[in-house]
């Protein structure tokens, strides 16, 4: 049986739907028996009902949606460096891009092709997309475990190689699990670490060609390295310095 004092402190969480079934039952039992608490309950309940049904819920004016959308879309579009009449600007932008892309492609064609025939830039791009997907959806971990001896055997039978699973909890990079992801047309191991609230995805697959990963893409930092016939690529929203520290530990 709860006292009036604890019942009073539970009335609001009760009305707010924040109690579990046992606590709810206790509050209800008390309200049935107590002489004073039901009045407090009724006043608070009435206030809540009034606020929810009568207090103004201000709806955004129609023009605000258009304003916000156009501001955000403008923000998403990179700003022009110089100002010209629109038609000329597009034409110049297009030719500059064309020139740059020819150069870029020529460079990439000289760059190494990996075993599956994709350029390493494409692989880096897949890594970024895979990292974003892992954060947006529920599919961050197939095997949630902080124990490297659980994570490593989990990959057996799912991959035709054994990724090197290490835990750096002591250094502030705890292992939180792993999953199988699909990069460059093959299943690869993704080991998932944390640094404070930042998630680090470390992709590991057998390949000795260096990965031309940009140091940053879409707000994420990347560090790639090769070791003993494996390619490693770590990606996170963590700052570059700490991500490199993580990479150094791993090496």
């Amino acid at each position: 049986m709860i006292t009036c004092k604890s019942a009073i402190s539970l009335i609001e969480p009760y009305l707010d739907g924040e109690l579990d079934a046992a606590q709810k039952a206790e509050v209800e039992a008390h309200l049935n028996e107590c002489a004073n608490c039901p009045a407090i309950y009724r006043r608070l309940n009435e206030l809540g009902t009034d606020l929810r049904t009568l207090a103004p819920r201000y709806a955004a004016p129609e023009h605000l949606q258009r304003r916000v959308l156009s501001a955000v879309r403008k923000e998403a579009r990179p700003k022009p460096v110089w100002s010209l009449r629109p038609a000329n600007a597009w034409a110049i932008a297009a030719s500059v891009l064309l020139a740059v892309s020819v150069g870029w492609n020529a460079m990439l064609l000289r760059s190494q092709k990996n075993t599956m025939g994709n350029t390493t830039a494409e692989v880096a791009q897949e890594i970024v997309s895979s990292h974003v997907r892992s954060l947006m959806g529920a599919h961050l971990l197939d095997v949630p475990s902080t124990e490297q001896h659980t994570v490593k055997p989990w990959f057996n039978g799912k991959l035709d190689y054994a990724p090197d699973v290490k835990d750096f909890a002591a250094a502030g990079f705890p292992l939180i699990g792993g999953r199988v992801d699909y990069i460059d047309h093959r299943p690869v191991a993704a080991l998932v670490y944390k640094r404070r609230e930042h998630v680090i995805n470390l992709f590991v697959w057998p390949s000795s060609s260096p990965l031309a990963a940009p140091a940053a893409a879409n707000g994420f930092n990347l560090v790639a390295w090769n070791n003993a016939g494996m390619t490693y690529c770590a990606i996170s929203d963590l700052n570059q310095a700490e991500l490199r520290q993580f990479a150094e530990l791993y090496k």
Binding site: P78, A93, P210, A216, W225, N226, N227
Partner: peptide, 18 residues
């Protein structure tokens, strides 16, 4: 054991234009 990193800023600037 080499680290291959491209200048990201140049990469972004060149290709995020439109």
């Amino acid at each position: 054991m080499g680290q291959a990193i491209l200048p990201a800023a140049a990469f972004q600037a060149a290709f995020s234009s439109c």
